[in-house]
């Protein structure tokens, strides 16, 4: 921050803050941020697995012939797409246990890592709707003849999806899926509202303990940028690994 006249109240930078002991008493401020980063990555990884599995299933349902399956899939997608993630987390955290029989609710509420479990499930389902949209549009982007050719060869519906449609659909949607993965990582920060000690929450905690707000946020920002960079490079590598020779751009 610029300092104007000598008596101006400015911001006092202290980049050494990361190596000072945190008042939590179990390490430095840097350790706090690293733990937060670990929580962010673990939460995002588990949520992404849910999003991929559920999203693929819903996405496939949406492209099945008939009316019931696509309707159910659309209902799933609309339900999870039209409420803010924060509200969905509150529903899982505060409302869902009350819909269960009392003993279950008590058990749920007393889980030691309730906010972690809630975040994984809440973010996983939220992202599953987005993954489902990508999967179904990937399948729809394939030429109609592909399904017909597979059927003509005597493949069952399940085999057609497993061996013909999904392998190409996943390749086509790899770039948008990468950005959905990045969204999943970014979205874990919303779970700080239900008490998850992820990266943004820890940066905020550093600020509250030490008042060194901009150092803490800069560190978190750099960590998110690094995650982004690594994920983007990994996705590019994966794209080149699974590229089908002669299909699309060389």
């Amino acid at each position: 921050m610029h300092r104007h006249q000598g008596r101006a109240v400015g911001y006092n930078w202290n980049w050494g803050i990361f190596w000072e002991q945190s008042p939590e008493g179990n390490g430095t401020y840097l350790d706090m941020l690293v733990q937060g980063l670990g929580t962010t990555l673990l939460t995002a990884a588990l949520a992404w697995i849910i999003a991929l599995v559920v999203g693929s299933a819903v996405g496939v349902l949406r492209t099945l012939p008939g009316r019931t399956a696509p309707l159910l899939a659309s209902a799933w997608i609309e339900l999870f797409r039209n409420m803010p993630l924060l509200v969905q987390l509150f529903l899982w955290y505060f409302v869902f246990p009350d819909l269960l029989p009392t003993p279950w609710a008590i058990w749920l509420k007393q889980l030691p890592n309730a906010s972690f479990v809630t975040a994984v499930i809440g973010i996983g389902f939220f992202m599953s709707a987005r993954v489902a949209v990508q999967i179904s549009s990937g399948i729809e982007a394939l030429p109609l003849g592909q399904r017909a050719a597979a059927t003509a060869l005597g493949l069952t519906s399940a085999q057609t999806y497993r061996y013909v449609l999904l392998p190409m659909a996943f390749r086509i949607i790899l770039p948008p899926l990468t950005s959905e993965l990045l969204n999943t990582i970014k979205n874990t920060s919303v779970a700080l509202t239900i008490g998850l000690a992820e990266l943004t929450a820890r940066a905020r905690a550093v600020q509250e303990f030490s008042f060194q707000v901009f150092e803490a946020f800069t560190a978190a920002t750099l960590a998110y940028l690094a995650i982004n960079l690594i994920a983007t490079l990994a996705a590019r590598w994966l794209e080149s690994r699974v590229r089908v020779p002669g299909y699309g751009k060389a």
Binding site: M1, Y11, L182, K186, N187, T188, S189, V190, L192, T200, A203, R204, Q207, V213, F214, F217, A220, T221, Y224, L225, N228
Partner: peptide
């Protein structure tokens, strides 16, 4: 686009006064 909105909200909440 690489940053979570929550972090950006905090950034500006503290940055805007300065």
């Amino acid at each position: 686009r690489a940053l979570p909105l929550v972090l950006v909200i905090f950034w500006f909440y503290f940055l805007v006064p300065y």
